[in-house]
């Protein structure tokens, strides 16, 4: 890919550099406006506990997703629409990709209107180690969504969450 980009760069070096600096400026502006929204936190073995204890007595929705999951853009799109309709909904996103792709995760979430969601990314060389800590019945299928009610009773759903189920969760927890 780098070689391809390099060749592309040779075709339009000046355009490329202008784009690069424009992008940097744009991002700085976005970053200051969005504040902590762009921070992607490292998700380790104890992170789910932290996420839960920060929300005692409060409902929230947690979705695991990945850049390498063909169904995940669909789930993020649905959540983005939901967040726009109900801005107070507490949505937590955890990307299961390598931690060095945090910027791409943040950018993808932003593109789906989810920059206001708390964001995490897997920070362990063995994803199975984290999955085991989160849910022993989860073997890596994505997207994977955990619906928490006020008492933190959890329903885990693999794959796209049916719209009716999401709507029911919203009605029950608002």
């Amino acid at each position: 890919m780098i070689a391809r980009l390099f060749r592309a760069g040779q075709r339009g070096v000046s355009r490329g550099f202008i784009a690069f600096f424009s992008a940097l400026l744009l991002f700085s502006a976005n970053a200051s406006a969005a504040g902590k929204a762009t921070a992607v936190q490292a998700f380790g073995l104890d992170s789910l506990g932290k996420i839960q204890s920060a929300r005692l007595g409060k409902p929230f929705l947690l979705t695991f997703w990945s850049q390498d999951c063909a169904h995940c853009p669909g789930e993020l799109k649905t959540l983005g629409v939901l967040k726009k309709r109900y801005p107070q909904l507490d949505i937590v996103l955890v990307a299961t990709d390598a931690a060095d792709t945090a910027a791409l995760a943040a950018e993808t979430a932003r593109a789906y209107g989810l920059s206001g969601a708390e964001q995490w990314i897997f920070a362990d060389d063995s994803p199975e180690r984290i999955r085991y800590a989160v849910d022993r019945k989860w073997y890596g299928e994505l997207p994977r969504t955990l619906l928490y009610d006020r008492k933190h009773q959890v329903e885990g759903i693999s794959g796209l969450v049916p719209a009716a189920r999401l709507q029911r969760w919203v009605s029950e927890t608002r």
């Binding site: 390498d68 999951c69 063909a70 073997y139 299928e141 994505l142 794959g159 796209l160």
Partner: peptide, 8 residues
Amino acid sequence: KVDGCPHH
């Protein structure tokens, strides 16, 4: 039945 990616 799943609308997701098993990765298996």
